[in-house]
Amino acid sequence: MNAKTNTLDYQECMQNAALAFLERHQAEHLGDLSALFNRTINHLVSSFDVAESIAIKLTSLAHIELVEIAFRQRLDLDYSSDTVVVINDPIKGLCWSVPVSLIYERILNAPDNVRLRSTNP
């Protein structure tokens, strides 16, 4: 039973490492999910000596978790204004206040912005 617990702890730890890597590097691979997957798998194999088959499985599970995290964060319209956007994560109990000017500067007006297009209101 103790060996099973150790195995589950190891897998959870390695899945958390995969999730952290995915979170850190997802912006570098917005158009190519397979490249991000391969980098994450290689990271687990080279940095933590994880078997490739296990790294593939753990990367897939971490990606599912990453997608779930992205969909639970919500825009709070009651507290947002013309100049500040409020985003909350009800599961973690976190709330972020982000100036619209920062969103424009860092995302919309960024030199590497190739995915977002302007629209006419």
Rank of each mutant, 00 (worst) to 15 (best):
R39S: 13
S34Y: 07
N42A: 13
W96L: 14
V50N: 03
T119S: 11
V98H: 14
F37Y: 14
L66N: 10
T83P: 02
D9L: 15
V84H: 04
I56F: 00
F71P: 00
E52N: 04
A110D: 10
A3D: 08
R115Y: 04
N2G: 14
L77C: 03
Q26Y: 15
E65W: 01
D112I: 08
T40F: 08
R115P: 01
R74F: 00
N6I: 10
P99M: 10
G93M: 02
V50A: 00
L33K: 07
V100E: 02
I107A: 07
A27H: 15
V86F: 04
R39V: 05
T7R: 14
V50S: 04
L108I: 15
T119F: 01
I87H: 10
N38W: 06
V67I: 11
A20H: 12
H25A: 02
A27V: 07
D76Y: 02
M1R: 03
A55G: 08
R117Q: 07
N16M: 05
D78W: 01
K92D: 11
T40D: 06
P111G: 10
L66T: 04
V100P: 00
S118P: 11
H29L: 07
A110T: 03
S47D: 03
D9Q: 06
V45S: 02
E105M: 10
A27Y: 12
L33G: 05
G31D: 13
A55C: 10
F48W: 13
A110P: 06
E28P: 00
Y104T: 04
E12T: 04
C95E: 15
R72N: 15
I56H: 09
Q15N: 01
L19D: 03
Y79F: 06
I56P: 07
S53D: 13
H63L: 11
L75W: 08
E105W: 00
A17E: 09
S47F: 09
A110S: 13
N88Y: 12
W96F: 14
S46R: 08
P121R: 01
D49S: 14
G93K: 05
E12A: 04
N113F: 07
T40R: 00
S80D: 02
Q73R: 15
R74P: 03
R74E: 08
S53L: 05
A51L: 05
A17Q: 11
Y10S: 12
R72E: 11
F37D: 05
I41D: 01
T5V: 15
V84E: 07
A20N: 10
E28D: 13
S81P: 04
H29K: 10
R106N: 07
A55L: 14
V67W: 05
L36Q: 12
D89R: 04
Q15G: 01
E52R: 15
N120A: 12
V100Y: 09
W96R: 12
G93E: 03
H63W: 08
Q11W: 06
L30N: 07
F71Q: 06
L94F: 07
T59N: 03
D9H: 11
A62Y: 13
N16F: 01
E28I: 07
I91E: 08
N2Q: 02
P111S: 14
A62Q: 03
V114C: 11
D9N: 08
L30Y: 14
F21Y: 15
I91H: 06
I64T: 12
L116K: 11
